[in-house]
Design a protein around this nucleic acid. Structure first.
Length: 601
DNA sequence: TTAGGGTTAG
């Protein structure tokens, strides 16, 4: 049999796929004598496990190196241990060494090494392990191997075909088999297929577990379907899983992602058991719909004695960014530093965004420059900050620096750099990046990218080019693209194109008051009083009035929000003074009010 | 000695 295995797994099979890291130079301070591990039920394997549990990988390797007799259990322990510490390259190395030492793997080994392949997303290695499983007769006889195989194929393949085939061949499926298949579909973005499998599982009275309910709820959340989510929630209640905290946390998350705020709050109040994840889920959920509420929940979390973690801080810092409350953000930054979380990558990224959105771009840059390590999100956040502050040149420089540092750009970073170019009038630079994206990085521009380029051309007055781009783009333009063109036509006084864009906007959003006003002004300017009157008549019938533009000022620990003619201005002395200063400053720098969109009395 | 699930950033 071993000859067959060796033939199947020749050394050349391993060489190019995964780098082999052989550790053979460890010093062993704890043990002076080599260990004899003829049977592996005793001390050495227990010690191996405890070392890996503690994360003392080197000690585990030292101990293993000292063992004179290593059997399949010992080798498998090492593979499993390396997997548990996320040292998957080392786990694979152990596996190859094991085969070279002539040790025959068993079902435990195969399922462990399949987990390694899954983590490394190494399909070729996984196929080798599959071949081995067939040769030694573990596929079809070990449910652990079958399930691990399915999981490996679901993770590493472009489609679910192989995973599905393994699943269909399993005669007695258990709860893990079902969950693995549902997870496979859901994690690759095919939540409906995952839910179909979940339904099939219920119909066939498959073994139920909290895992399968959690992933089914996740599938509903990923497609934003609270209708399906409520059905799964009902099934959770019917099958008695309401006392399972991970399941309830996932239901809470589903309601938040489906924007069912009242259902989320009700469930949260009804939950008798809560952990940090429960609070974090609610805080992150409200962070996208009600920033202020998100901060209030955070405050409650603290007062009820729960300790916030990096997930919590990332969400509340984002809430401060969206509220533009610098004072609050600064306080949080202080807490983050005091708790020693200031080197956390995700928190740092959210702080960069917060400082930029609160108007303090210098502190964003200071924080970014001081980060011990950065990722694509860090660079993108900084570029978006620069773009929003009108520093297009800095954003472009940062993009080039990022590429030099070896980070590969994605679509979002191109949105950031194109938007920065657009606001800074760097048209040719922006177009160069548009070409770079498609020609060099092979990234297909999506609707957002086209929107940026339309904006880039339009702001620079190249309205006809912008229109041609809209006409030739491979998507149906949405309302925002026509609004962008309309803004450009208005700024560069292109009435005929503006008329076309305005009519397109009204086709899609018939209640946009601003568009009616703008279009009627164009008619007035060309003396077309018939259409002007008709439009004004239509405007009176538009029920959905435009929301008044809202501004806010942060004074001490309070945020004052106000609209035109609001009583805030006259009732708040300090606020009034700030506004007076602002008006003087605006006039000093030459601001002339644009009254084009003010309706005639 | 083995397999599957829940919360973060642009």
């Amino acid at each position: 049999m071993m000859a067959v295995v060796r033939k199947l797994l020749s050394p050349t099979d391993f060489r190019p796929i995964i780098p082999l890291v052989v550790k053979n130079s460890f010093s062993c301070t704890q043990f002076n004598e080599p260990f004899r591990a003829k049977d592996s039920s005793g001390l050495p394997t227990d010690l191996l496990r405890s070392y890996f549990d503690k994360g003392s990988i080197q000690e585990a390797q030292n101990l293993f190196d000292k063992m004179l007799h290593r059997d399949v259990i010992t080798w498998t322990f090492m593979i499993t241990g390396y997997n548990s510490c996320n040292h998957h390259n080392s786990a694979w190395t152990m596996f190859t060494q094991m085969l070279r030492h002539g040790v025959q793997p068993n079902a435990f080994t195969v399922s462990a090494v399949l987990k390694t392949c899954k983590a490394l997303k190494a399909l070729s290695c996984g196929k080798l392990a599959h071949g081995l499983a067939i040769k030694i007769g573990t596929q079809g006889s070990s449910i652990y191997v079958d399930n691990a195989l399915m999981d490996m194929y679901a993770t590493c393949c472009d489609s679910m075909g192989h995973a599905r085939m393994v699943f269909e061949d399993i005669i007695t499926k258990n709860d893990v088999s079902w969950t693995t298949l549902i997870t496979g579909y859901t994690h690759r973005g095919d939540a409906y297929a995952g839910l179909r499998v979940f339904r099939q599982m219920l119909l066939e009275e498959g073994e139920l577990s909290s895992f399968s309910f959690s992933i089914a709820v996740r599938a509903c959340a990923s497609i934003g379907s609270d209708i399906l989510g409520k059905q799964v929630h009902a099934a959770v209640i019917n099958h008695g899983f309401v006392s399972n905290l991970p399941v309830m946390n996932s239901i809470l998350d589903m309601y938040c992602r489906c924007r069912c705020a009242s259902e989320a709050k009700q469930l949260f109040c009804e939950m008798t058991q809560k952990d940090t994840i429960t609070w974090n889920t609610l805080i992150a959920g409200f962070e996208t719909v009600d920033f202020k509420e998100s901060l209030c929940i955070f405050s409650r979390m603290m007062s009820e004695g729960f300790s916030p973690n990096c997930f919590t801080f990332t969400s509340v810092v984002a809430a401060c960014a969206n509220l533009a409350v610098l004072y609050c953000g600064l306080q949080l930054h202080g807490v983050i530093v005091r708790r020693g979380l200031d080197n956390n990558l995700e928190i740092s990224n959210s702080l960069i965004d917060m400082y930029a959105k609160c108007g303090n771009i210098a502190d964003s840059r200071k924080l970014f420059s001081g980060m011990p390590c950065t990722n694509l999100v860090s660079w993108t956040s900084m570029m978006i900050g620069y773009g929003a502050h009108g520093h297009g040149k800095e954003a472009v420089e940062l993009f080039n620096e990022m590429v030099k540092s070896g980070i590969k750009p994605d679509k979002i970073v191109f949105v950031a750099v194109l938007s920065a170019c657009s606001h800074a009038g760097l048209v040719d630079e922006g177009l160069r990046y548009f070409r770079l994206m498609t020609n060099y990085y092979n990234l297909a521009p999506d609707r957002d990218i086209y929107g940026c380029v339309v904006d880039l051309l339009g702001r620079a007055g190249r309205v006809e080019e912008a229109y041609q781009l809209i006409e030739n783009m491979p998507f149906n333009p949405d309302e925002s693209i026509w609004v962008s063109l309309l803004g450009a036509c208005k700024a560069h006084k292109q009435p005929s194109m503006a008329k076309l864009a305005a009519l397109r906007v009204l086709d899609m959003k018939p209640n946009k008051v601003g568009t009616y006003v703008l279009l009627s002004n164009i008619y007035a300017a060309e003396g077309n009083w018939v259409d002007f009157a008709g439009l004004r008549k239509l405007l009176r019938g538009v029920s959905n009035k435009k929301d008044a533009g809202r501004s806010w000022i942060e004074l001490k620990d309070q945020v004052y929000s106000f609209v035109v003619g609001d009583r805030f201005v006259s009732s708040n002395e300090q606020g009034c003074e700030v506004l007076k200063l602002l008006i003087v400053h605006m006039k000093d720098v030459g601001y002339v009010p644009d009254l084009d969109c003010i309706p005639c009395p």
